[in-house]
C-alpha cells in the first residue's frame, strides 16, 4: 500500500503554513516526535512551546496566545485533546470565542497496537456537542493538508483528528476542500454511503464490490462533522433514500448521529450506522480490529445488501 498517516500531513504542512503566517504557534505536550512537529520546532523554535505532560495547561496557554491574535495549535493525542483538556477548551476557547486549533493524532482505532487507553472513540461526540466548535477528520494525506490550510484560514476553534497509522493516498495535491462541505466521491442511485477519516478507505473497497454486483452507490467523504453538510445529506437522500454512515468512532454521537440529526427532520429516508458498537477497542493490527468490531468493508457490503 502506498500511503501516509494524516499526522504526517500535519507535520509537513504546518512548516509551509508557518513560513507564510507568522501568527502560527504550536503547543506540544511531550509527544512532538509522534505528532510530527519536530520539524516545526526546529525551524520555528520561538513559536514552539512544549509544556510537557500537562495538557490542560496547553489548552489555556493556547487561549492566552489567541487573545493576542496568534493562531495557536494544541498538538496531542485525541484521547487527551478531547478529554483531558476538554473543559479548558470548552470554557477558555469555545465559550471565549478564541481562535484555538486542537489538532490531534491517534483518532479512533488507528493507534491499533496501543490499545484502548490511546484509542479515541468518543471525541467526535464530545466536541460536536460544544457550541462554536468545528469538528473535522480528513481521509488522507493530501486532504488533510488542504483541510488544515482551511482550518487555519478560518477564525474560530477547530478540532481536527488525524490517523496514527498510514492511510492510502486518495486525493491529488490541489484538490479543493471546503470546511462544512462534504465531497461526493461517486454518484449513485441505490444507496448512499457517508464515511469520514480512515473509514473512507473501507467504504471505497465496499463500493467497488457493490458496484461489481450492479448496486449503484453514492459515496460521500463527510470530512466535516460539524457543521454537518445538511444540504448534501438532503440532496443525496432525495436520490437514494438510504444512507449508511461509516466512522471510526463509537456509533453514539459521532458522524452517524450527526447525519441522523438531519435525516430525522426529513420526511423520507432510512439509515444504518457502522462504527464501534458502544464498546472499547483492544490492542491488535488495525485491519484485524476493524474486522473484529464489524467496521470493515465486508460489514459495509453486508449492511448495504440488507438495505437494498
Amino acid at each position: 500500500m502506498s500511503g501516509e498517516s494524516t499526522r504526517q500531513a500535519f507535520g509537513d504542512v504546518i512548516i509551509d503554513i508557518a513560513a507564510e503566517n507568522e501568527k502560527i504557534f504550536v503547543i506540544d505536550c511531550d509527544i512532538g516526535k509522534s505528532m510530527k512537529t519536530v520539524g516545526f520546532s526546529q525551524k520555528y523554535p520561538e513559536r514552539h512551546i512544549n509544556v510537557g505532560i500537562a495538557e490542560q495547561n496547553a489548552a489555556g496557554v493556547a487561549a492566552g496566545l489567541a487573545t493576542l491574535g496568534k493562531i495557536p495549535i494544541v498538538s496531542t493525542y485525541a484521547v487527551f485533546g478531547s478529554m483531558r483538556m476538554l473543559e479548558q477548551i470548552r470554557t477558555s476557547a469555545c465559550y471565549a470565542e478564541l481562535n484555538v486549533k486542537v489538532f490531534c493524532s491517534h483518532g479512533g482505532l488507528t493507534p491499533a497496537n496501543d490499545g484502548p487507553t490511546h484509542q479515541a472513540i468518543e471525541d467526535f461526540g464530545i466536541y460536536r456537542t460544544i457550541p462554536n466548535m468545528t469538528v473535522i477528520m480528513p481521509a488522507d494525506y493530501e486532504s488533510c493538508k488542504a483541510l488544515i490550510k482551511e482550518a487555519i484560514n478560518m477564525d474560530g476553534p477547530v478540532y481536527m483528528r488525524f490517523t496514527r497509522d498510514a492511510m492510502p493516498f486518495y486525493y491529488s495535491n490541489g484538490e479543493p476542500f471546503e470546511i462544512g462541505k462534504g465531497k461526493v466521491l461517486k454518484e449513485g442511485t441505490d444507496l448512499t454511503i457517508i464515511a469520514n477519516g480512515d473509514m473512507v478507505h473501507e467504504a471505497l473497497k465496499a463500493v467497488a464490490i457493490l458496484e461489481a454486483e450492479n448496486i449503484s452507490v453514492e459515496l460521500i467523504d463527510m470530512h466535516t462533522i460539524k457543521p454537518i453538510d445538511e444540504a448534501l445529506i438532503l440532496k443525496t437522500l432525495s436520490k437514494t433514500k438510504k444512507i449508511i454512515t461509516v466512522e471510526d468512532h463509537n456509533v453514539i454521537n459521532g458522524l452517524g448521529s450527526a447525519v441522523a440529526d438531519i435525516v430525522a427532520q426529513s420526511p423520507i429516508g432510512i439509515m444504518r450506522k457502522i462504527g464501534l458498537n458502544d464498546r472499547f477497542g483492544e490492542s491488535g493490527p488495525y485491519h484485524d480490529l476493524l474486522k473484529k468490531f464489524k467496521m470493515d468493508f465486508s460489514e459495509i457490503v453486508s449492511v448495504a445488501k440488507e438495505l437494498i
Binding site: G60, A63, L65, T67, T91, A96
Partner: peptide, 22 residues
C-alpha cells in the same frame, strides 16, 4: 479573559505573557 472555571486563568496568563514577549 473569560473566566469562572477555577484553575484556568494562570495558563491563559502564561500564553499571553509568552505572546507579549514574542
Amino acid at each position: 479573559m473569560t473566566s469562572g472555571s477555577l484553575g484556568q486563568g494562570l495558563s491563559c496568563g502564561v500564553g499571553m505573557a509568552i505572546g507579549l514577549k514574542y
